[in-house]
Design a protein around this nucleic acid. Structure first.
Lengths: 208, 208
DNA sequence: GCAGAATACGAGCGACCATTCGCTTTTCAA
DNA sequence: TTGAAAAGCGAATGGTCGCTCGTATTCTGC
């Protein structure tokens, strides 16, 4: 294999200084997305806010899309870390309690960084390399399906794929809408009520 | 009141020729959105596809956003026409059958123009005047709430606002996801199965 | 302390885009 | 028939944006 020409955008930052640059760029992108919106997130602006030159930006990212994708990826990782962590203690619980905790967990996940979550969901045009962003979340689907498998004896449903699709879609939509579009529900009581309702909805559908 | 200066963008087209121009512009915008995507929809391109000059475009629309908003509005009207029409015959049906028909109707609504619906949902950055596009659909919410009121004696829920939020969000998300992200479900059987599941989910939640 | 690699810089280029405006053509009422 | 309003035209303008590249600075192994 021939060495890559050094003029080509480098993918990996080996020195610490450059890792800091990459972080600053991703962080600046996230900040601009939240505070000024997607269409203000030009490469020049991102570089400026990051305290970095445009040239440096293009050493690590092939373009604007890659920055946004990196922000999305970082956010997704943070959310999934929360989810995976808490889910461990739920897996062996019966449907009645388990589903309620899963719904509460979904709410918690949407509260990791609601403003960023909303911008990513609403302002990013899913075009080109960003096409896959909004696609149905595969990991949540798999995790939930695994839970259903372990609880199958409690369930009235037999098609676990279909049931997982129904449940994950429902829980995601309800928590997403509640957290991001109904600020009134931020009050604890309202949100508790919603979690109860969602849990009852899903539990009734699943339980034998 | 002083007469408006004739150089200012006119809002209303009085002659038939100009109404045709407006239609052509909206139609061209929709076509470009579907076939080439949001970022190819420049004002120059829209005018070109419409067979109209850019100048004329600006006689009737203050800018690109207004075009997209018009497309969205037209699509929404078409969908709501379908919904209102079919809903009339459902209102006096008991929850068991009514909810299933409402779910089937939601599927039908998503099939009015799935490609356009998807572009509007995924590619349009909700910024500026387009901010309100993706907001929770108020009319569906109201219509469903009215149905619940008329069937309240059958219901175990008492907070109709909360219940409507839960049901409309759920039905919308399930049908949207199924129609737009799971082409396999386009086959009649699969879709029937999904409609059954969704109906059972919602019915079990609502019924006394 | 030195050489070369890695990193950073930022003015500037080319492309594209939204919007304007002076002008022509069409319509229609009088 | 006519003239004024309505509608249409499209080259041109000003601005922004993504991205490049020649140069300057910093780091690291020797």
């Amino acid at each position: 294999m021939a060495r890559r020409a050094p003029t080509e955008p480098r993918k990996f930052a080996s020195q610490e200084r450059s890792r800091a640059t990459v972080d600053a760029l991703v962080e600046a992108t996230a900040r601009i997305l939240v505070k000024e919106g997607f269409d203000k997130a030009s490469t020049n602006r991102i570089a400026e806010v990051a305290g970095v030159s445009v040239g440096s930006l293009y050493q690590y990212f092939p373009g604007k899309e890659a920055l946004v994708a990196a922000v999305d990826e970082r956010h997704k990782q943070q959310v999934m870390q929360t989810v995976r962590g808490e889910l461990a203690g739920i897996l062996d619980q019966p449907v009645e309690q388990g589903v309620r905790k899963i719904v509460a967990l979904a709410v918690k996940a949407h509260r990791v960084d609601p403003k960023l979550h909303r911008v990513l969901a609403e302002q990013i045009p899913r075009v080109g390399k960003l096409e896959a962003l909004g696609t149905f979340n595969r990991e949540n689907y798999t995790l939930f399906r695994t839970y259903l498998e372990s609880r199958q004896h409690e369930l009235r449903v037999d098609d676990l794929d279909l049931a997982s699709f129904v449940c994950v879609t429902t829980i995601e939509a309800l928590t997403h809408n509640a957290v991001l579009h109904h600020p009134k529900m931020l009050s604890g009581d309202m949100m508790e009520a919603l979690i109860d309702e969602a849990a009852r909805l899903v539990t009734g559908y699943l339980k034998r």
